[in-house]
Amino acid sequence: MEFEAQLLQQLEIEKDREIINRRPVRIDPARIRRRVWLNNLLQRVFSLSTAFAIAVLAILFYQIISQSIGWLDWQFLSSNLSIFPEKAGIWGAIVGSIGLILIVIPVTIVLGVSTAIYLEEYATEGRLRDFIRINLSNLASVPSVIFGLLGLSLFGRILHLGSSILAGGLTLSLMVLPIIVVSAQEAIRAVPGFLRDGSYAMGASKWTTIWKVVLPIALPGILTGSILSVSRAIGETAPLVVLGIPALIMRVPTSVMDDFTALPIQIYYWTLDSVLTREYANLASATIVVLLLVLFLMNSIAIIIRNKFQKSY
């Protein structure tokens, strides 16, 4: 007992000595002021760089809209291409873009949703599932121009589709496939497990459960994802140019096997031509306005669907 008390006393003394010997803590107001000043300065720098990115966006919109004023009218939308800038219109390009959408939507929804259902509902943990997943994430980052080369070989030359709407639509479908798969996967994963269990408990088979319970609930998410992937597809230029879309198509396409032009392609050729004739830059910006409006509309619909129909459990 005595020994313990002695030890405690010893410790007390050492603690006191340590506190006495410790360097006194001094609050340095100048240093704190400097640190706060630096903090405030950099907060401003960081917020300005965010603002810079958004300002560029504003300048871009302003520039394009101001150049399109006077050119974007009904005549421009409804008439066909012409060698005279004043008479040129984008009706053919609009029809071409709609044709592309009509191919991309069914192909990507069937392929993408099937893949997502397989990965989420059927595939067991293992090599095959990991392989498909890694493959999808790598496919998502393949440059779009490479998909153009694939389309040129596979659809253009081997399947003899040439540079038709069908070839372009299929090429774009493969390109946006990873986007729709990932969003459909998320939508399916968000369906709570107790609904599946309830369905099984009622005697429903696996496919009936997926078809009648999981998919209807996941539908808004799937639709949102497919709209976003389609809007990615119609803004894409490089794969179509690589497929060999001719520069000047005067005829409005009437079937999926026809050669065609689309809105982004028209923007590309008119931008290149603006070196020779200034007016082509106006035509290009008017087309950009149309393209951006279409994209804006599609994205708004996607957001509305997501907010209105998505239930949370």
Binding site: T50, A53, I54, V56, L57, I59, L60, Q63, I64, Q67, S231, G235, E236, T237, A238, P264, I267, Y268, T271, S274, A281, A284, S285, I288, L291, L292, L295, N299
Partner: peptide, 21 residues
């Protein structure tokens, strides 16, 4: 969302912007 808007603009539009502005 404004930054994401920047990512949603098609690259051809940026091409036009770079060249003409």
């Amino acid at each position: 969302p404004m930054l994401e808007l920047l990512a949603g603009v098609p690259t051809i539009v940026y091409g036009f912007f770079a060249y003409s502005f």
